[in-house]
């Protein structure tokens, strides 16, 4: 049994996540309120960065999956998996925060608008990706199946992002990431950019922790398979005829 020597796990990601969270909170409350939405507009500074991180996470899952299929190196598979987990978390956050915002501005928690529907589908497809990873403990098979889905599922991101432009819906069109000029006052744009930056710091910190966790999980799977676990049927003793031979 190869006992990997216990490496000290870095602590910087915890500090980075904490600081990024606090900075986001502070700048969101310092920004001026919107003239029509009032204080409600502050939800923007978590809703948009969360959605942004979901896009980035799934983009990196796609790149890492493609690299796995090309290089067959499990480190790319770990990266794809870690990024997808973060993406699912932040897609969920986008949906929940968006619902709170929707209730207070539109007047309903949920409605089957194109953007909302496609985002919900994207959430469930990537939950499926995470479930697929649990379907086998053969590390190579798991990595290959997941990588194929990880590459294919990316087609949803442009659909989700441009759904508000493609179909007439209730969700507003993008304030950033669009061809025309930005429609926000400068202090608000600056706040949004800081929040997006802070969420990106959180992404890097979470990736570092999750990739580390993925490595440990692989060791557990390998140890389970190779070690002392009884072989099926070993409890059965072969029948023999009685009497002294």
């Amino acid at each position: 049994m190869t006992n990997a020597k216990p490496q000290s796990s870095p602590v910087w990601p915890w500090y980075a996540m904490g600081i990024a969270g606090i900075v986001t909170l502070v700048v969101s409350f310092v920004a001026p309120p919107d003239a029509i939405q009032g204080e409600l507009s502050r939800i923007l500074y978590v809703h948009v960065p969360a959605a942004w991180l979901a896009y980035v996470s799934f983009g990196i899952t796609m790149l890492a999956s493609a690299l796995y299929l090309w290089k067959k190196d499990l480190k790319w598979d770990r990266m794809a998996a870690a990024s997808a987990e973060i993406g699912v978390l932040f897609t969920g956050m986008t949906l929940v925060i968006g619902m709170i915002w929707a209730k207070s501005t539109w007047g309903v928690w949920w409605t089957w608008d194109a953007r909302l529907t496609l985002t919900a589908i994207m959430f469930f497809v990537y939950l499926g990706y995470l479930a697929l990873r649990r379907s086998t403990d053969d590390l190579e098979a798991r990595a290959k199946r997941a990588a194929i889905l990880g590459v294919l599922a990316i087609v949803q991101i442009p659909l989700v992002h441009f759904s508000v432009v493609l179909w007439r819906g209730l969700h507003q069109t993008p304030s950033l990431l669009k061809p025309a000029s930005v429609d926000m006052d400068t202090p608000m744009v600056v706040t949004l950019f800081i929040a997006v930056g802070m969420f990106s710091v959180m992404y890097v910190a979470m990736m570092s922790k999750l990739v580390e966790l993925g490595k440990l999980e692989e060791q557990v799977i390998l140890a389970d398979r190779s070690s002392t676990a009884p072989v099926a049927g070993s409890a059965v003793t072969a029948p023999s005829l009685g009497g002294d031979a």
Binding site: A35, S41, W106, M184
Partner: peptide
């Protein structure tokens, strides 16, 4: 349902109220 748009302004005067007076898509 109220459909608010993508503009965020600290001051009422900066709003382009004609922006969505013609239907999008």
């Amino acid at each position: 349902l109220v459909k608010h748009d993508e503009q965020y302004r600290s001051d009422d005067e900066h709003y382009d109220t004609e922006r969505h007076s013609c239907s999008d898509p």
